[in-house]
């Protein structure tokens, strides 16, 4: 067992466990904290994939900005705990759970079914992986090849800001 596999398995275990804990905690604040943990694990996985820029953005934007916003809203609304998940499960919920697990099985089947084909060539990372994940490379591609989507993103964010303000306002003048 190589060291890379060990690191991966640890990070994967943290990610999966924190995800499961997130969806089962009755208290939203706990959920949010477990989600942040999940994001951290993901950032670690990005590092193993040599995507340094994405890993840092993951921490900064997701864990830093978005989750703080979520926590802020949770505290603003001063929500009470939900009743424990076990007690609110109905037939419909069990059905949903079953379908979702079936979907998981099928996805894994698809991955395994295809492993004889294209995926088989991807047993290890590309030699370019180290180069393309750097901030320098991402920056140069982003501002040359993808500059139009990048600029359009700013418009999207502006629209989101305006939309958020309009909806969260107390009353329309």
């Amino acid at each position: 067992m190589s060291s890379e596999l060990i690191v991966f398995l640890i990070l994967a275990a943290v990610g999966v466990l924190s995800g499961i804990l997130m969806i089962t905690r009755p208290n939203p604040v706990n959920s949010a904290l477990f989600l942040i943990l999940n994001f951290m694990a993901l950032a670690g996985l990005y590092i193993t994939l040599h995507a340094q820029f994405v890993a840092i953005i993951q921490i900064l934007v997701y864990a830093g900005a978005i989750m703080v916003l979520v926590l802020f809203v949770i505290m603003l609304l001063n929500l009470e705990d939900e009743e424990p998940l076990r007690e609110q499960m109905s037939k419909r919920h069990y059905g949903s759970l079953l379908v979702a697990l079936l979907a998981l099985v099928l996805i894994v089947q698809v991955i395994g079914w295809n492993s004889g084909g294209t995926l088989e060539t991807m047993r290890e990372q590309s030699p370019h992986a180290l180069r393309i994940g750097t901030v320098e490379h991402i920056g140069s591609v982003l501002f040359t090849e993808h500059v139009y989507p990048f600029e359009l993103t700013s418009i999207l964010l502006l629209a989101a800001i305006v939309g958020a303000i309009v909806m969260a306002k107390k009353r329309f003048p």
């Binding site: 419909r92 059905g95 949903s96 379908v99 979702a100 079936l102 979907a103 099928l106 996805i107 089947q109 698809v110 079914w113």
Partner: peptide, 20 residues
């Protein structure tokens, strides 16, 4: 809304089943 979302997942299952 959750029922609708559940139906989306059912659709996903059907599509995946067809692929397999």
């Amino acid at each position: 809304v959750q029922n609708y979302a559940a139906l989306i997942v059912v659709g996903l299952v059907i599509v995946l089943g067809l692929i397999i």
